[in-house]
Design a protein around this nucleic acid. Sequence first.
DNA 1: TAAACTATGTGAAACGTTTCGATAAGGATG
DNA 2: CATCCTTATCGAAACGTTTCACATAGTTTA
Lengths: 340, 340
Amino acid sequence: MPTTLKDIARELNISVSTVSYALHGGTRKIPDQLREQVRETAVRMNYRPNRLARSLVTGRTNTIGVVPPVLDDDVFLSPYLRMAWNSIVNEAEKLRQDLLLLTASDRTRAADSIDDLVDSRIDGLLFVAPSVEAKPFERLTELQVPYTLMSAGGNAPGPHFGVDNNQGVRLAVQHLMALGHRRIAHIGGPDSSYDAIMRKSTFDQLVREYDLPLFDGQSQHGPWTRESGEARLVELMKLAHPPTAIFAGNDDLAIGVLGRAFEMGIRVPDKLSVIGFDDAGFLAYGLPGLTTVRQPLPELAALAVRSLVDFIATQSVPADLELPATLVVRESTGPAYLTP
Amino acid sequence: MPTTLKDIARELNISVSTVSYALHGGTRKIPDQLREQVRETAVRMNYRPNRLARSLVTGRTNTIGVVPPVLDDDVFLSPYLRMAWNSIVNEAEKLRQDLLLLTASDRTRAADSIDDLVDSRIDGLLFVAPSVEAKPFERLTELQVPYTLMSAGGNAPGPHFGVDNNQGVRLAVQHLMALGHRRIAHIGGPDSSYDAIMRKSTFDQLVREYDLPLFDGQSQHGPWTRESGEARLVELMKLAHPPTAIFAGNDDLAIGVLGRAFEMGIRVPDKLSVIGFDDAGFLAYGLPGLTTVRQPLPELAALAVRSLVDFIATQSVPADLELPATLVVRESTGPAYLTP
DNA sequence: TAAACTATGTGAAACGTTTCGATAAGGATG
DNA sequence: CATCCTTATCGAAACGTTTCACATAGTTTA
């Protein structure tokens, strides 16, 4: 039985509306003396505004819903999401927005379930790396729900903020080529990911553009996991002419490659160069640090949050933005090892 | 302008209450035919219940507020929190609870600010690794707010779920002693952390209990960071008789030690054994693999969430629980190197 | 001095639910 | 036939706010 405005009003023998004005006084002016008295009483009585009631009448909640990617069970274990989520939290705190986590609870029919997310409890929706299958964003526009997408790739519907995959992949391939590599493989992410698709297709395109040698299993899709990286490496090393360099679609995959390479006695970067993507904050000790393409996740997350808040406030759709990637050279890449 | 119960009622020429009963029918029976008709209309009109309004009257929100530890800026970058948060999310989803993230927005006076967290929007509060300074949990009891604590150590007020630090530390020290180590140092966490305090005091006690040699800087407090681990190692190695083994209060610290040891050319585990605490998952990769004391974070998180939900439902305070730690032996510990 | 402000305050509607207590009609019971 | 259950439905209160329209009373303006 928490204190309400009515309780304060009764205590002071004034009306509820006066109390409301005194505490959150916007348009109305309340004499200083009374206002102080009200405030004092509010504190004394442990008054806490009921935000449900407030939101019900104002229509605003100052809360944004975050929809994580639909992966397997342990979504938040992903280094990418860890980084993204941390930045989202930071930015939301700055903008004084609360965060409601919307997990895709028991939705087999993931597609239509967007309806379930739309709720009077949130002002807008932030999708983090949504999967390609999740089409029904038009539905959101129809329902008048502001939303932004973080890391969704160029062909995603709606205002999205991501890295320039094209430029990033180019950075990686050019870095490898500058080191003399020509036989380069790509271990990519799942084809439900916008980023994975973009990175793979850019890679494929660059191979043609630079006239690099083609070989079996050169460019593959798979889950964004360390295990996938390990498995792919094993396959690639079975080839008669294995690649001298591997461009992994994200850091997890790259770490898998690195770990398995060590186990197989393949020295990195002497015999094999490995480059990742994301720079999601892996720390190395005792193994070569991972050369990778840095995606400005903190900036992207902040951008996605800020734009969403703007969207909500102004009701006008924000403009997309792709930020450039940067190359972070560590020790996992080196001059190409050329068989004599 | 979303559809409301009133809209449906008007459409069908029936009363609002009938619609409500038909859709979420509890006590009242509605004839099957009418019920179907109502449901159909609801779907057709894109009806979505307004949860604010519902909660306002029922007093339940099915949402629990999560309060992360007050660390520096990037709270969610911590491997511990990543693990904990992931498990919290999983369990909450199972129990169909939504999660509202309550960040400690601009509170200089962190102590009293618990009030700000108490909100009609949540049914209960889950504190993750609260700091020792945050005293005012009595206030919560006073305000009748159900809450549980995850990883708060034995002397924390309120129902808490954590690892058995005492037993865990014992595991670590005994493991090292079994390998012949006697000169053992402890690099601990900040003294704002219940866990850090417990681990340090247990360590100190064990040193006495087993009559291990004492030396300067043997047991220290510091932030839970890799940098702290690095710095401490450097100091310890300046000693005339450096320790042969280091027990780090968490994995971050241990990784710092490992990394710096590698740089300094101190071979692990040949010259130095290192053991961590948490086993919070791989954000660091490298060699040798870190021997550590595993804290069952997923289970603890699930427990904390479940107990909170119970607490909310039954209004009776759940019982504390400490789960045992387990030893995970990898390659960073080995037989003691004894100076000839 | 009448009209028009200003300052201060009140009352009540509205937000969208849930749920309690009617009510009316019909059927069964005595 | 009067009474008492059911059954099907409704109206209205309540949850705690915000905010608009109105009501005083005192003060300025013409």
